[in-house]
């Protein structure tokens, strides 16, 4: 296969960056997209040019490290597929392929296609956990969980934190990520005590990171490599509303002089 690539090149955070074009003629259909990128980099290295920096690690679709907008779509044209599991047979011989990094002010480009996604870690730090210490715990079967609830929680927890939702959203919103994380814990009995505080603090962190607002396009869901449902966004909205309007601000308030 012959392909023509247009790749975003940017040497550092402060560099303005530009698209650069390359041609590859030794691509085969069985190659994964990242193997095609390896081939390009091998070629550039041998030619004495700088290879394209891109994030990748497990190459089996779970680590969430790979992050490329391919022909305008996060992780490329195939739905429910990460870039590393995309194969060249999904492209035509002679195809022109545009490769760009995730675009969001909360995900600054570090170099070429590598972006800084630490904003996601900080959203988790704001409350994406069940407060806990390591040590003896009650037997799990002492708190039965309805299997459907456990499965829905797992649906949400399947999120690999790649950031495709942000990249795909025309508003650069991180609601799908945040809501999946909040819903995973909010659905389970272990996550109940902190459920409403969690909703408030994760949303507030998400806002301060500079992500845009959700306008219910559902583009995130369509481009999510794990197919996370926007139903979780509705869930977070509802939890956030309850937390803001209904839940007591200070649960100890009852003992204050009324």
């Amino acid at each position: 296969m012959r392909i023509k690539l247009h790749v975003w090149r940017q040497s550092s955070r402060s560099d303005k960056g530009h698209m650069e074009s390359y041609e590859l003629d030794n691509v085969v259909e069985e190659m994964s997209f990242l193997e095609m990128m390896d081939t390009l980099n091998e070629k550039l290295t041998v030619e004495g040019k700088e290879p394209v920096a891109f994030d990748h690690d497990c190459r089996e679709g779970v680590c969430g490290m790979c992050s490329m907008v391919i022909n305008g779509e996060a992780h490329g044209p195939k739905s429910k597929t990460t870039t590393c599991q995309l194969y060249m047979r999904h492209f035509d011989d002679g195809a022109e392929i545009f490769i760009e990094p995730w675009r969001a002010s909360a995900f600054p480009v570090v170099r070429d296609l590598v972006v800084d996604r630490s904003a996601f870690d900080r959203i988790i730090q704001a409350g994406g956990y069940v407060s806990n210490h390591s040590g003896p715990k009650p037997d799990p079967n002492s708190i039965p969980i309805e299997p459907n609830i456990a499965e829905t929680a797992l649906d949400a927890a399947t999120c690999i934190g790649c950031g495709a939702c942000v990249a795909a959203c025309p508003n650069g919103s991180a609601m799908l990520f945040t809501s999946a994380k909040a819903s995973h814990l909010g659905l389970l009995p272990q996550g109940q005590p902190e459920r409403f505080d969690r909703a408030k603090s994760m949303v507030s962190q998400m806002e301060s990171e500079g992500f845009g607002s959700c306008r219910n396009y559902a583009e995130c869901e369509a481009q999510c490599p794990k197919g996370i449902s926007i139903a979780f966004i509705g869930r977070l909205n509802s939890d956030f509303l309850k937390a803001s309007l209904v839940e007591p601000i200070d649960r100890r308030g009852d003992m204050k002089a009324q």
């Binding site: 069940v130 715990k137 039965p144 969980i145 309805e146 299997p147 272990q190």
Partner: peptide
Amino acid sequence: DQAVSQGVPFAREYGG
């Protein structure tokens, strides 16, 4: 026990 207390959603049977 530790993982479940963190909210790891292990598979459950009917009955929870």
